[in-house]
């Protein structure tokens, strides 16, 4: 599955106005979205870029020149939990709430999703195109699953905002929230959620990001892709003067784990 994306910035002061405009554009009420993202990094270290791991001369045997295997990239992945404001610890009642980490029976309120985003494609179509994969986790402990797959917990953040759907365009007006203060070193996600009001936006000015996206099943069908790109551009034109939607630098959306020379090979 591929995702066509455009991003725009909305200052905090204009958030309410833009929210109203979007409600008019999409002809629907905003849907509250609160997500908890937990970022994982593979345990294995990425290989040194450019090394072919076959140093030294060959023995003169004329081999069929096999394709040089480039160093395989490793990617950050994340699990996402959909939340509602009620899931957070309430201000007055600070008693320890039951840990929310496990997916419970039919509790559809706390569903987890495994998400992977590739680096956006090169090539300029006027929108960002990237491969994306999203798998719903129906039951079990997502953290244990991720660790068993050879991942390390890195950090977590919260996403707060509103979603609209305009035909095929999914519009997400959101901002990233974090727990304030220095992050304690830990190897697993927090067992209980903090209070919602204690979360501080990552952008200190409190600005919002407008993300417009269209999912495309298959890039192999140019007509379908063009249709998606057209629709997204039409939406961009529609929003002109309200929010300027643009394509960010593709490397800003890079999810690859960078190679760091680590001579001592110390495992993190």
């Amino acid at each position: 599955m591929h995702e066509l994306l455009l991003f725009g910035q909305v200052p905090r002061s204009r958030h309410d106005q833009v929210l109203k405009i979007l409600a008019g554009v999409a002809a629907m009420q905003p849907q509250r979205v609160i997500e908890r993202h937990i970022v994982y990094k593979p345990q294995r270290e990425p290989e040194e870029p450019g090394s072919n791991l076959r140093r030294g001369g060959s023995q003169g045997i004329v081999q069929k020149q096999t394709k040089q295997n480039a160093a395989k990239d490793l990617y950050f992945t994340q699990t996402v939990q959909s939340l509602a404001e009620g899931n957070f610890k309430s201000e007055q009642n600070s008693s320890v709430q039951k840990p929310n980490l496990k997916v419970e029976g039919n509790d559809s309120g706390n569903k987890w999703t495994f998400q992977f985003h590739d680096v956006p494609d090169t090539g300029d179509r006027g929108v960002t195109v990237r491969m994306t994969s999203s798998t719903d986790i129906v039951e079990g402990d997502p953290h244990a699953y991720m660790v068993a797959f050879g991942n390390n917990y890195v950090s977590e953040y919260y996403l707060e905002g509103h979603r609209f759907v305009n035909q095929n365009v999914v519009i997400l007006l959101h901002r990233i929230l974090q727990e304030p203060g220095p992050r304690p070193i830990q190897t697993s996600p927090q067992k209980s959620l903090p209070t919602f009001n204690s979360l501080k936006p990552l952008d200190p000015s409190g600005g919002y990001v407008l993300q417009a996206s269209i999912l495309v099943q298959d890039l192999g069908k140019p007509a379908i892709l063009d249709q998606g790109v057209e629709e997204l551009k039409r939406f961009k034109d529609l929003m002109k003067g309200c929010v300027e939607l643009d394509v960010p630098d593709r490397l800003l959306l890079d999810t690859r784990v960078k190679y760091q020379a680590n001579p001592f090979g110390v495992q993190r």
């Binding site: 979603r163 759907v165 095929n168 999912l215 099943q217 379908i224 249709q227 998606g228």
Partner: peptide, 11 residues
């Protein structure tokens, strides 16, 4: 139905 996230574009 309209408010739900639409399925990916396909043929």
């Amino acid at each position: 139905r309209r408010s739900r996230i639409p399925p990916p574009l396909s043929e």
